[in-house]
């Protein structure tokens, strides 16, 4: 019989440690599907940030490096520059990429490093127990904003995909979600496109995936899906904010 859906080949171990309903698993699957469909098993090199996605190397059968918290794009820059034939991607959370690693991330994007970023935005620090992240929504209760995020004190949530789209070095900047089948199929296409653009030496490709963290949102997985739809997407709109058609070479 023909497979309508089967486990991606490169996903060597699908026994994820994630909480029930956590979208990290879904994002792992989409990355694995992109690697399979472009035949990148031997060339892909994952640079993994610190956060709940930290065990990606246990699940995907690709070479991988573990970067210090926030420094994924500094590590990816080094790897890609000495091994330009490798398809280098980082997998980072919002605490990792947009808080402690903001400087490394923005400068790598600005330099137009030819790497791909899978940015999992769940509006919270998942792994460490639910602290406020730069992406935490106004009013959102976290362990470090017990009365809700308030802009006078905490600033506004940062829209990374839009912000990076303003930089000349960026080839692709998009935001996707996996909370409905339609959004999931769109996400699949964009993640694949990001890898294809790296293969074509287009420069920095960035895909932000809106994700749920039922545990630290104190919600059931069903309520968490609704939160992505009703609270996150209105503030973090889905779409492609920049897509370059030509490589950036003079």
């Amino acid at each position: 019989m023909k497979a309508v859906y089967k486990k991606p080949e490169v996903l060597k171990n699908p026994c994820f440690h994630f909480c029930p309903g956590c979208h990290h698993g879904t994002v792992h699957k989409l990355v694995a599907e992109a690697i399979d469909s472009l035949n990148l098993k031997d060339s892909a090199l994952a640079v993994i940030g610190v956060g709940c996605g930290v065990f990606l190397y246990d699940y995907l059968d690709v070479d991988s490096l573990e970067a210090p918290h926030g420094r994924g794009l500094a590590v990816a820059t080094g790897v890609k520059r000495v091994r330009p034939e490798r398809i280098v991607f980082t997998y980072q959370g919002d605490g990792d990429l947009a808080s402690i690693g903001m400087a490394e991330s923005v400068h790598a994007a600005n330099r137009g490093e030819n790497v791909t970023v899978i940015f999992v935005n769940n509006t919270i620090y998942g792994m460490t127990g639910g602290q406020m992240a730069p992406t935490t929504l106004l009013g959102q209760v976290t362990t470090t904003s017990p009365y809700g995020r308030e802009f006078h004190r905490d600033g506004y949530p940062i829209r990374m995909a839009e912000m990076l789209a303003t930089l000349e070095g960026v080839a692709l900047s998009a935001r996707v979600s996996v909370c409905t089948p339609k959004y999931l199929f769109d996400a699949k296409k964009i993640i694949k496109k990001a890898f294809e653009m790296q293969l074509d030496n287009m420069g920095f490709t960035f895909v932000e995936v809106l994700s749920s963290c039922p545990t630290n949102w104190n919600m059931s997985s069903m309520d968490a899906l609704n939160r992505v739809k009703e609270e996150m997407i209105p503030f973090f709109p889905l779409g492609v904010f920049k897509e370059r058609k030509m490589p950036d070479v003079l």
């Binding site: 019989m1 023909k2 497979a3 309508v4 859906y5 089967k6 486990k7 996903l11 699908p14 994820f16 994630f18 309903g21 956590c22 979208h23 990290h24 698993g25 879904t26 699957k29 996996v178 089948p181 999931l184 199929f185």
Partner: peptide, 14 residues
Amino acid sequence: AEMCPDVVIEVWRD
């Protein structure tokens, strides 16, 4: 199967 975060379901058809 597409939506499952934990790759629990595989689907086959002839």
